[in-house]
Amino acid sequence: MQLQKIDKARYRNHLNKVIAACVASLTMGSLGISQALIAVFPDADGSHFHWNLLGVMVSVMVIGLVLKKYRNHPFMYEVNYVWELKQALNKVTRKMPKLKKAAQQGDIDAMLAMQFSYSGSKQLWELDDNTITLDDLSIWQAQLDTLAAQYQAQLDLAQYNESTLKKF
């Protein structure tokens, strides 16, 4: 995955609309399905938990299928990009202890993966207005810059490929 420039206002607008549509769909779908099932299959003791649960589960599955079907729609571009970015960053984060150790020993691929993680995290945190941890990120980036200078490494994000994580 390559980092791309994302319009924050458009991303927030589309994300809010997608969330609102999902919440509304879940509410209406689960209530509609469960009420229909209760009307068709009433329970004498008044416990309809299983029908309510089934209504929620069916609604969640339908919402998931709709999101999957329309994930490549132009309206979903920014939302999908952030979703994929979070997944890519998660893969790097799981390998971070090994990456840091390898970077200390001069492994360029490890440094490049760390650079991707730091750059992607910065973009993600700025898009989500999560600026509390940006100070820590600056410290980590400075440490990586020092390592890159020490080993004379050029960390070009265009060279990053997720497949390099397999060796760590």
Rank of each mutant, 00 (worst) to 15 (best):
I19C: 03
I19F: 09
A21D: 02
S25F: 10
L26I: 12
T27S: 06
M28S: 14
G29E: 02
G29H: 05
L31M: 15
G32F: 05
G32T: 14
S34W: 07
Q35W: 10
L37W: 13
A39C: 07
A39K: 15
V40H: 09
A44M: 08
A44N: 07
A44R: 10
G46N: 13
G46P: 14
H48M: 06
F49Y: 11
L54G: 08
L54H: 03
G55W: 12
G55K: 12
V56I: 15
V56S: 15
V56W: 12
M57R: 04
V58R: 02
S59D: 04
V62W: 02
V66F: 10
L67C: 13
K69E: 04
Y70W: 15
N72G: 06
H73V: 14
P74K: 07
V79S: 10
V79N: 14
N80W: 05
V82K: 07
E84I: 03
L85N: 04
L85T: 13
A88R: 06
L89A: 00
L89T: 03
T93I: 11
K95H: 13
M96L: 05
P97E: 06
K98F: 11
K100V: 05
K101V: 02
K101M: 04
A103L: 01
Q104N: 12
Q104Y: 00
Q105E: 15
I108L: 04
D109W: 00
D109H: 00
M111E: 01
L112N: 01
L112V: 02
A113D: 02
F116R: 05
S117W: 01
Y118F: 09
Y118N: 13
Y118C: 01
G120Q: 03
S121D: 06
L124C: 08
W125F: 14
E126L: 10
D128V: 14
D128A: 03
D129S: 11
N130W: 01
T133V: 14
L134G: 10
D135I: 11
L137V: 02
S138P: 00
S138V: 02
W140N: 14
A142I: 05
Q143N: 03
